[in-house]
Amino acid sequence: MVLADLGRKLNAALSSLNRAPVVDDKVLDALLKEVCAALLETDVNVKLVQQLRSKVKTKVKATFESTADKAKETNRKQVVQKAIFDELVNLVDPGVEPYKPKKGHFNVIMAVGLQGNGKTTTCTKLAVHYQKRGFKSCIVCADTFRAGAFDQTRQSATKAKVAYFGSYTETDPVAIAAQGVAKFKKEKFEVIIVDTSGRHKQEGELFEEMVQIGNAVKPDMTVLILDASIGQAAEAQSRAFKESADFGAIIVTKMDGHAKGGGAISAVAATQTPIIFLGTGEHLTDLDRFSPQPFISKLLGLGDVQGLMEH
């Protein structure tokens, strides 16, 4: 299971709380240290982890001081657990509803992201996903940069039995994107997915190109495709993509590997944008839906204490 390791560690830390006779500063500090260590190992941004630590501390202290029955240790434990749980949820849940494609409409989805993070693969997976749910779906290959990009789309779309558009000769991705989307709109496709080249914030021109493609196809939803193994660069890169492309959703790829996706979690926090899917393999159907609540519960193995937490 995704993030199982992190879950185990967080869980162990939390249950150590139950063994402590009293919850004082020392116990709280020790607990937070373990929780933070677990998060750091998954690549959650170092600053975010520090923030989480101090937020939990402040919250817990404030609650302790404002409640009269300091003697009741079980209450104090609950206060601590809830504070940690809430802050963890905050990490992956920005509380924003992602766009949902509507039947009988044009729904243009544009994929953006760093080089090699899985955009092209994920575009086909998305097309398959929506096609299965009755949307007439297609892919526009607006990557004119990467060698063999159109062949990649052509081959994987053919395998997936999804319509595609692209060109071997046109070198302007903006023109291709516009042509492709116009063509598919005329043909009454419902989900039109635009794949773009990989890029990074350090190259201004590449970002400008992305903005222009966006202006040409007016996406209903732009998706940032992010590799689960990304480390501390996640925050700065995702922030930059947010500023230029204003993506409304994140898909974390390669979750079938050993990576726990903490970098991607940092991207959520940095951009206040929800994760909608996880990529879990190289095959067309390796795509899992993502929703924060069950995710965190599972992560912490909290099924049984859920009731406790909701007070």
Binding site: R146, A147, D151, Q155, S156, E282
Partner: peptide, 16 residues
């Protein structure tokens, strides 16, 4: 011999 477009990707590089 697995990933879509992998061979064509190299073909383009070799041509360049």
């Amino acid at each position: 011999t697995f990933r879509s477009g992998a061979v064509e990707q190299l073909r383009v590089h070799v041509r360049n």
